[in-house]
Design a protein around this nucleic acid. Sequence first.
DNA 1: CGGGATCCCCCGCGATACTG
DNA 2: CAGTATCGCGGGGGATCCCG
Lengths: 129, 129
Amino acid sequence: MTASAQRPAPQFNAFAASCPSRRLLDTIGDKWVSLLIVALGLRGPLRYSELSSQLEGVSQKMLTQSLRRMERDGLVTRTLTPSMPVRVDYELTSLGRSLLVVMSQLKEWAELHMPEVDASRAAYDADHR
Amino acid sequence: MTASAQRPAPQFNAFAASCPSRRLLDTIGDKWVSLLIVALGLRGPLRYSELSSQLEGVSQKMLTQSLRRMERDGLVTRTLTPSMPVRVDYELTSLGRSLLVVMSQLKEWAELHMPEVDASRAAYDADHR
DNA sequence: CGGGATCCCCCGCGATACTG
DNA sequence: CAGTATCGCGGGGGATCCCG
């Protein structure tokens, strides 16, 4: 699997798993990652506990996992302050902020068009009952 | 769960499940839906079998499921031609095309910045071994 | 050809307990 | 406070069979 370079592949194949767009989708497809980008973008650097309380419903495990992933991807920095008790702050990197811009486009589309989606769903459900 | 309207909820809470942006993420978070939007956007109306062969790795079940969902959301139209054998074409609606625009922004970001992400990952992995 | 229905397995994720 | 480690299950999704 992950069929790598058997045949030349037509220039840019957005449908191959190795394509950048596919891999970006793997990242922002994670809802917690997306929400973290927005949260950190809107409200500046935040502590672990602040993120935990702002992303309602996130489990400790998923929060940590998502933050680690974002850190690895260079989207956030993790700053440890060895006070007592320990303090950890997360902040978007410039790369993370550039992604925030794109995510905001998504947000705009959603707020503009989700009502149409809702209407379409209602119509569809009415038909197919 | 699905806590609906118990308390007023602070104006626009992007972190609540009912928020438009959250719900859009639920949609495009599905990688097949995203890829279908791009495929149908770039190559015009496509038949079921054409989609099946272009989205490498998609199972029949997931393809159908994703198309149904998109149809319900008003993103694609499904046109049945009762020839022999049957022919079914899928095409983006204007709503779907407007979403394609946004998705293209994502694609641009990916092609522009994924190399940085890769570099960050390599550095991270080197440190944390 | 374009699906629907079923079975079944895997692992993503929540819950819980423990640590520096 | 900010995590790590472990267990357990539920359901998302693949494989398969069948139908109009």
